[in-house]
């Protein structure tokens, strides 16, 4: 989307590290955006239909901006990047790719993701890679609405009826191992920290466990303990859900990649 050539000259090591990080951020955004868009027209109440559609639209916008930064670093154009890569080439975490299941599941996933997303972009606004820092400062303002949405519902369900509390707790327990997978490291993490491109995954996970955990405890919900994270997504090892999603998301584009939209 930005057409201005803003990136400073970067060394090959910095460039590789930035590209690795940007693919994770962009792929998480486009895949979660697509998953949440599956609630459009199907939300349990009108306000939630609109909320999930809006958050989906936000995340697709974030993905477009992130893919544009990648394009400025010599990677494929945003549409080609999103619509022509294979499952193995995607670097999203498994959390975002999981099928939408029931609304409790999608809501809890969104809550866990938004809490991490806000922390991530808050810290990235200090990135030494200035184009990413600028974008992070912009996106951070939008993400506070996603966080408010998730926190409001955790509180409502935690203090609501027994059935609501039970369904949300069931979803929390099911989603949690995948949520921990958001913080899977890659081979570039040392370079990302060394060049001050972004925070370490463990730093983000500590903050996320602390801040997200407080929201759940305050709501009377239980944070699962001693959970083994589901890793693999950051290395391109995905379950069948991502392949199914991409088959649907990319089908029309792949019919004629050169067509003018």
């Amino acid at each position: 989307m930005p057409t201005e050539a803003v990136q400073p000259s970067v060394t090959p090591a910095v460039r590789s590290a930035v590209i690795d990080l940007l693919y994770r951020l962009a792929d998480d955004s486009v895949i979660l955006g697509h998953r949440n868009s599956e609630w459009t027209g199907l939300g349990p109440i009108l306000e939630e239909d609109i909320a999930f559609s809006s958050m989906a639209q936000d995340k697709l916008g974030h993905a477009q901006a992130l893919y544009t930064l990648l394009h400025e670093l010599g990677e494929p154009a945003p549409d080609a990047n999103a619509f022509l890569r294979t499952t193995e080439q995607y670097r999203c975490c498994e959390l975002v790719a999981l099928a939408r299941a029931d609304w409790a599941f999608s809501l809890v996933r969104q809550f866990f993701f938004s809490e991490a997303d806000r922390i991530r972009f808050e810290l990235l606004s200090q990135s030494a890679f200035e184009p990413l820092a600028q974008l992070a400062r912009k996106l951070h303002g939008e993400l506070k609405y996603h966080v408010m949405h998730g926190r409001m519902w955790m509180k409502r369900f935690g203090q609501g009826t027994a059935e609501g509390r039970e369904r949300i707790q069931t979803a929390i327990n099911a989603v949690y191992p995948h949520a921990l997978g958001m913080f899977e490291s890659t081979a570039q993490d040392e370079a990302i920290a060394a060049h001050r491109i972004g925070p370490s995954e463990s730093e983000m996970q500590d903050r996320w466990e602390n801040e997200g955990g407080t929201v759940l405890s305050d709501a009377g919900l239980t944070v699962p303990k001693n959970v083994k994270p589901v890793y693999g997504g950051r290395a391109g090892k995905h379950g069948p859900e991502l392949a199914a999603l991409l088959e649907s998301m990319q089908r029309v584009y792949r019919i004629d990649p050169n067509t003018q939209w």
Binding site: P2, T3, E4, Q134, L135, R137, K138
Partner: peptide, 12 residues
């Protein structure tokens, strides 16, 4: 005429 989309300054 060219339009450059920028995030600096971020719109608020």
């Amino acid at each position: 005429v060219r339009v450059d989309v920028v995030f600096d300054p971020p719109w608020t």
